[in-house]
């Protein structure tokens, strides 16, 4: 993001063009992060809207304390997703909605990608909440390890370790499926 600081300062002072640009630049990745966390398209849509409304309500109080804007924004998304998951926990298992579209679909690869979504859904269930969080921030939101660490309030080293252990667990799960085929 070019001149993020200037853009955020303008947005803080109520510049609607700057707010619109922050929205445009972050919309897709916030949606992907939330979708991976909650596993349901309808809930992901509602929560994505809430993230940006919260951004609008709170941006005036945002302060630069060595935390990039994206980390602050994903902290909002993280908190909303955690609240949502807590509320849903009583209702049981969460499943990635198969109606979710996959971007840039290669028609020849549709079957494989759909399988990957199903695999991902089941495989993610094997991870701890922290591991899932790191996967969603890294691969859904596309955040760097440093940014993910800021969102989670953890050290970068801890995030790297979580990332490593999550991928080990996922690899194990995916290879067991391959062996079953």
């Amino acid at each position: 993001m070019h001149d993020e600081r200037g853009l955020v300062e303008r947005a803080k002072s109520g510049d609607t063009q700057a707010l619109a640009r922050l929205y445009e630049e972050n919309f897709d990745r916030v949606y992907r992060y939330i979708a991976l966390r909650v596993g349901n398209a309808a809930d992901a849509e509602d929560l994505t809207a809430k993230v940006f409304i919260k951004m609008l309500e709170s941006i005036a109080s945002f302060k630069w304390r060595g935390v990039p804007f994206s980390a602050w924004l994903f902290r909002i998304a993280h908190n909303l997703a955690v609240d949502h998951l807590r509320q849903k926990a009583k209702k049981g298992h969460l499943v990635l909605d198969e109606s979710m579209a996959v971007s840039e679909i290669d028609p020849a690869a549709v079957a494989e990608i759909r399988l990957s979504i199903e695999q991902l859904n089941i495989a993610l269930e094997q991870l701890t909440q922290n591991q899932k969080e790191v996967m969603a921030l890294r691969f859904g939101a596309g955040l760097s390890t440093a940014e993910a660490a800021k969102v989670l309030g953890k050290r970068e080293g801890a995030v790297k370790a979580l990332q490593h252990s999550a991928l080990m667990a996922l690899r194990k799960r995916l290879s067991s499926w391959r062996n079953d085929e």
Binding site: F27, D28, Y31, R32, A35, L36, A44, E45, T48, M100, A101, V102, S103, E104, I113, S116, I117, Q119, L120, M135, A136, F139, G140
Partner: peptide, 8 residues
């Protein structure tokens, strides 16, 4: 790849 979910 599986995370490349696209909103409506």
């Amino acid at each position: 790849e599986a995370s490349a979910l696209e909103p409506r």
